[in-house]
């Protein structure tokens, strides 16, 4: 049986992890490679790197981090931030990323999804959707880190990128992100019921129950979280045990 994936997400800026990471046995909490190794050992099912500076000038630092992480972590690695072209994807994949997450560029030019999945295969093309509730049951996509409204309906866009060849959707609720009040399960459900590809829940996790709800209510195939894992508030293993007790199949 396929297991629900638990995915810690690291925000990387200039090659360093930002937002606090607070592990007891971590020598350098800002070193993404050290953090990745700890997650590898603690049984994380995948890892996600988000390059929040995301500019071409800074890309070489990220590539170096990706390369070193891939050398030491034997789990799938998704990398995102500022990916705009087939050549951006090519470079990240050849540096050791298993999947590349595309956000703004997918909205600007949905054909990039078709092109990229034709060349590299759907399995490595993740479309990251940042959505905000604008009216009842209507979520709109925002790009450029949430600053630009697009007028595009998130559910319709998710269906569109699926048909263009996306392999997975990383769905972040901008209303919930940072609130620690749980995922937007209505949004998750609306998207996961409409697309045939896996949906990763993101934005809003404050406790283990939120992860369980994302799967049970939201229908997510995978759950992503940042701060609750980084601060050591909740361990990956405790999360998995709790999810398993709740009847969700996980890799223990």
């Amino acid at each position: 049986m396929l297991k629900t994936r638990i995915i810690p997400c690291l925000d990387v800026k200039d090659g360093r992890v930002v937002k606090g990471i607070n592990f007891v046995d971590l020598i350098d909490a800002g070193d993404p490679i050290e953090v990745a190794k700890i997650y590898d050992r603690s049984g994380a099912d995948e890892l996600c790197f988000l390059d929040i500076t995301a500019s071409h000038e800074k890309r070489p630092i990220l590539l170096d981090v990706v390369r070193k992480t891939a050398e030491q972590c034997f789990m799938p690695l998704t990398v995102g931030g500022g990916v705009r072209s087939v050549s951006d994807i090519q470079v990240l994949l050849s540096s050791g990323a298993d999947k590349v997450s595309i956000n703004t560029a997918a909205v600007d030019d949905p054909n990039l999804i078709y092109e990229a999945s034709s060349i590299f295969g759907s399995q490595c093309i993740v479309v990251a959707i940042d959505a905000k509730l604008v009216s009842e049951n209507n979520w709109e996509i925002f790009t450029h880190g949430g600053r630009t409204s697009t007028g595009i309906n998130a559910v319709e866009f998710a269906k569109k990128v699926t048909s263009l060849g996306a392999g997975e959707i990383l769905l972040t609720s901008m209303d919930k992100d940072g609130t620690k009040s749980g995922y937007d399960n209505d949004l998750l459900k609306a998207v996961s019921e409409e697309v045939s590809i896996p949906v990763i829940a993101s934005g809003g996790v404050g406790k283990i129950e939120d992860l369980i709800d994302g799967v049970r209510i939201g229908g997510a195939s995978a759950v992503l979280a940042a701060s609750i894992f980084h601060f050591g508030e909740i361990s990956i293993q405790d999360t998995k045990v709790a999810m398993s007790k709740a009847g969700i199949s996980v890799r223990l």
Binding site: M1, L2, K3, T4, R5, D45, M75, P76, S122, Q123, G167, E168, V195, S196, I197, P198, S221, A222, R251
Partner: peptide, 28 residues
């Protein structure tokens, strides 16, 4: 969902030395 993405377990159909003595049956 397709792709089939994530960790799933394998069920042995026959003995093969390459699968000997592996604790977990979950693979990515």
């Amino acid at each position: 969902k397709v792709p089939h993405m994530g960790w799933n377990n394998i069920d042995a159909k026959k003995n093969h030395p390459v699968f000997n003595d592996i604790k977990s049956s979950d693979y990515y």
